[in-house]
Design a protein around this nucleic acid. Sequence first.
DNA 1: GATAAATTCTAACTTGCGCTAAAATATCGA
DNA 2: TCGATATTTTAGCGCAAGTTAGAATTTATC
Lengths: 214, 214
Amino acid sequence: MAKGADPSALTDDVRPLAQSEKSVRKREAILRAAIEIINARGFAAATMTDIAAALDLKDAALYYYFPNKQALAYAGHQRSLERFEALLLRVDADGGTGLCKLRRFLRALLDDAVDNGPQLYFGDNSYLDPDQRLAIETWAARLSKRLERFLEEGMADGSLAPCEPELVVQLILGMLIWLTKWAPGTPGLTNERLLGAIESMALNGLAGPRAGRE
Amino acid sequence: MAKGADPSALTDDVRPLAQSEKSVRKREAILRAAIEIINARGFAAATMTDIAAALDLKDAALYYYFPNKQALAYAGHQRSLERFEALLLRVDADGGTGLCKLRRFLRALLDDAVDNGPQLYFGDNSYLDPDQRLAIETWAARLSKRLERFLEEGMADGSLAPCEPELVVQLILGMLIWLTKWAPGTPGLTNERLLGAIESMALNGLAGPRAGRE
DNA sequence: GATAAATTCTAACTTGCGCTAAAATATCGA
DNA sequence: TCGATATTTTAGCGCAAGTTAGAATTTATC
């Protein structure tokens, strides 16, 4: 009971709350599976039955943890952006040249993907309702801006060549988004090799005259 | 009438055939709208009603040109890969260094997108049935291989630095796929600026010792 | 202008999926 | 062990979207 038809749709989630350790971990597991499946097949094609099945549950069980499919997806987007932001802040705090930060961030993101699976960083979110969409979109834009700042710093400190940060960031994001689709199906692929490829292409291209040592 | 329940699902399309000029052009228009909408929203979220509405038609009218939604999407994928391949072959035939070919191909692809809208080059196709999927996937793999050859040529002729072609091609494709999602919503964005960004990042990175003139 | 063919529409059927209610089972503290 | 709470299931509703059949309408041809 106590379905609690909550009108303020922006609050994270509105479920029984104050639950046991185990319950929280199950919620996490559901969220993780949802992110993975939505990322792989898209929101519409990812059925509640599919997501539930990944945890040996029936679809109805998910509604004990999330009020509906949209809310589940929304929580997924939030979770992904949280991760992204955490990595970004950590790398930023560690300092260094712009190139150096960029390199460390890519490394951190790839490593995170290994541990926590592909995420819903950017990409489609048209299925969210306007409020949620705006929130996610705004957040994502802020993160993009922060990434752009790495590029600007790099251009200022000479570690990166002149470029249009806004465009280049999008290009980089494109590589990363697409990565989550094909990389899992490529045997023998390590983060080392991936970073090498990114390095040989993107970073060498951006590297400026004083790119030298870190 | 004459619905012709055709069992050999791999043949392009099986409709009344031998139709007038006008009919063919309408089929093209439908295909184009379908590609655009499927690309924007994903297969499942792109309804027949939406696609039809883009041409001021009711959903049922589409079934005069395509037997079902899957076949429409399949034709869309084929059309996109045809385009991709045509550009690839043309650029290859025109010769030049590996870097030169790569650069010309990207330019051609971007220009094509302006004229013919975003395409379904790669990306998701899980909604096709196995036969169709295999066909598309095989074709796409062949095209990737051809792109890789540009890189290998470039490494051989010294216009490109050493790299893993298979990975780098995927990274490039990622940039291009993601491009079709965000670029349309960016005002003031020209292909010139886009190419500049790609140049400053990817190509400068790949450029080898003898990258010099074309 | 009349007839046939080509094209589109209306109306309904079918299916799959999000979602709900309530019963059934598992978990845990006293 | 028993009762209360937490968790999951079964069963089914409702709706949206793919699809179809046949009627209606447009277009082409003589």
